[in-house]
Design a protein around this nucleic acid. Structure first.
Lengths: 238, 238
DNA sequence: AGAGAAGCGTACGAAACCGTACGACTTCAA
DNA sequence: TTGAAGTCGTACGGTTTCGTACGCTTCTCT
């Protein structure tokens, strides 16, 4: 890993000299589905800049129920608690779609934050956008229906991953959305009948992206706009 | 306002010399219920350190529906977007319970942030705790029932305000919880029958705080623990 | 090839919550 | 004093979602 050529949007937005310093502390790792990057109520040992794939930020309830409160892909990083000066995290970070990440130990991360103002500023801005995503999810969970929320979730995943087909069981999706598994069957069936997606055992394929956007709630667009400053200029998906 | 003697927890945790510098830029204002401190999608002109009363952070949907995603009282401040380097806010800040705040113009706020590391560090840590509150609300809205959520909300309000009686219509509470107004009537009626609260026209009174905690979901405790570092040592309520 | 596990489709009653409407009571201003 | 507006209790049918169960298909392992 001698040459600094990240895919991650945050790293790409760093001034070149800063990137070199950051790069020297990064180690490339593979992200395997269901792998836990951030363990709930545990010390945060590393920050992760996502290169490909996606990571779900989850809240776990006392009864063991889980629900996704945010989603991180190559536009962002996992490790906000480190940035904000918290030792432990209340939110779990679990790999949702396989990929790669660049990992940095907490100590190096915090040192670089204090030495490179542009680095800190960038990550803080991302934190602001992510915060909006979580807030919108709170509102969405309270007011919108399963089918809309599923459509939104598929779009968010589609934005962060190449291709249109995602390996993913209904059981897994139901956990992230905080609903019953048969609820996913019904909702995804409705989307398929409308010609927006296709699904088979253990996978979903986005067929009609524009239609999916129409079927989702406004929450998708609201959050997307908040992340627009991170978009590659010449790579609007779809 | 010559002597620096704030009630606000964040300001009280500042080193004395920093507090003096911060204090000189603060102006005391009155908070009137329904007053908007942060307008959605508008520039953030000021930061507000709450001295008394509470402010609700709200998300507004396209159909005009609103729902609360976070709550700020004398333990915190309003203006996280300024801290994170965002120009506009996606979340509205509206006064929920009357009180006072110390207001600081955005420019002064940002200058002090860069000049006083302890100030910035403190506010970042608060941001982390608040972020957990929003994430927990997202999970709570997705999985918990109205009665539990109402109990939780009453407890959060109780924590942040003196006394046990809060002037507040059911209509207003229904907006914050994102439910129908009659839904509040029913839920609050159940809590009253259980002897946990009493309510009359335009007001609710907390009667049995411990009982209310038992009736609320775990979300209350989870968030409270995250804010424990801000608590006055000798003032645990009830 | 066969057995077991995983994943999915479907069904059914129950519960939660919605949208809406209406009447009663209180408060407030004319 | 009287009307109007605000607030609350209650009711009703309808919708969404739940919890659960069952059976089918596909995959995996031996």
């Amino acid at each position: 890993m001698s040459e600094a050529s990240p895919v991650n949007r945050l790293l790409r937005l760093l001034p070149p000299q800063d990137l070199q310093r950051v790069w020297s502390k990064l180690k490339r790792i593979t992200l395997v589905p269901k792998q836990v990057l951030l363990e709930q109520d545990a010390k945060v040992g590393n920050a992760f800049f996502i290169e490909s794939g996606t990571v779900s930020m989850l809240q776990t309830m006392d009864d063991g129920a889980r629900i996704e409160v945010g989603l991180v892909g190559p536009e962002g990083f996992v490790g906000i608690p480190l940035l904000l000066g918290e030792e432990t995290t209340a939110v779990e970070g679990m790999v949702q779609v396989e990929g790669e990440a660049l990992q940095m130990p907490a100590a190096a991360f915090q040192r670089l934050l204090s030495e490179l103002p542009a680095f800190a500023k960038l990550l803080l801005r991302y934190t602001g956008s992510f915060h909006v995503q979580v807030a919108q999810t709170a509102a969405c969970n309270g007011r919108h229906q399963v089918e809309q929320r599923l459509a939104r979730w598929l779009l968010m995943t589609h934005d962060r991953n190449p291709g249109d087909r995602f390996t993913m069981t209904q059981e897994f999706m139901s956990t992230l959305l905080g609903i019953r598994r048969p609820g996913v069957t019904v909702a995804i069936g409705a989307l398929q009948r409308a010609g927006l997606v296709e699904h088979s055992r253990g996978a979903v394929t986005v067929v009609d992206r524009a239609g999916l956007e129409a079927a989702s709630c406004e929450c998708y667009q609201v959050v997307k706009r908040r992340f627009a400053w991170l978009d590659p200029v010449n790579a609007p998906k779809s």
